[in-house]
Design a protein around this nucleic acid. Structure first.
Lengths: 141, 141
DNA sequence: AGAATTGTGGGGAAAAGTGGGGAAAAAGGG
DNA sequence: CCCTTTTTCCCCACTTTTCCCCACAATTCT
């Protein structure tokens, strides 16, 4: 389970630290992918990634469908591992996609970790909070 | 179950004591989050927080919906644990949000503990009491 | 009144954030 | 095919922050 919001520098080599509390769960390796829909980078522990991609594949009805899905999911994914300091290297293409420059906001989102640029995160955070309070108000907590 | 109202100093390191009676229930760790709607800090025992976040997540209808909810709920949460003196460290961002300076009002609120600034607490207390008596009068107690 | 517990403060050790250098591997050109 | 150049990756080092422990004063309980 990941939670919390952290701000880190991304150095010239494209390295971003992960919060120490996340590292133990990431030790077996990480899969980096484009955030689906949102302009962010999603980092999954390998085990969780497998779970997700399997459950998605199970929903593909035709073989052609499945091939497409596999391309979309695996094509844009990168494997990464932590260095001795607990950092991961963010491929340039993903940084570009998420608009991440020299600062990254690292957000724990339950089953995955998301990396955002400052600007995109501010916007997303606001609308996510609004949506959350709607749900809370209407359903009760 | 938490109840009672206590006043404590918050020291320069941002540490606030919890009432001794609360400590046993908090020993396994605490999750700190913004009070929803109100300008306070909410502290949940981990078990209770899991219960809450699970029941909320179950109410998200679409995947995109769920991701947003996860961001809002998990992203704004902090893990904390008691030190040897029974204190927790309040992150600066939460103290700022709740307007807590060097004094915190610690309030037991049944399933969680809330931390308030003096000013906000006075206002909230007043309106809460008025509303409570209305509810009691209309339903019978 | 004495003893234990609690509120409050501070100091020191350990860990985390950040940056850079050098070896190994990969890529490219002669 | 080999040598050169570039890139990748791993390790080291420094600074700052965090965390844990100790200590004293005040209060409560017996």
């Amino acid at each position: 389970m990941f939670f919390g919001e952290y701000t880190y520098k991304v150095d010239e080599k494209g390295r971003a630290p992960l919060p120490p509390k996340f590292r133990r769960q990431m030790k077996e390796g990480v899969i980096l992918a484009k955030g689906m829909g949102e302009k962010c980078i999603a980092a999954y522990p390998v085990a969780e990634w497998k779970r997700l991609s399997d459950s998605l594949a199970a929903k593909a009805v035709t073989p052609a469908n499945l091939r497409r899905l596999n391309r979309a999911i695996f094509g844009s994914a990168f494997g990464a591992s932590l260095d001795g300091q607990g950092r991961i290297i963010l491929p340039f293409s993903l940084r570009e996609y998420a608009g991440i420059g020299d600062t990254a906001i690292v957000v724990g989102a339950n089953n995955c970790v998301e990396l955002w640029s400052e600007g995109e995160w501010q916007a997303e955070k606001k609308s996510a909070e609004e949506q959350a309070s709607e749900i809370i108000e209407s359903f009760g907590a």
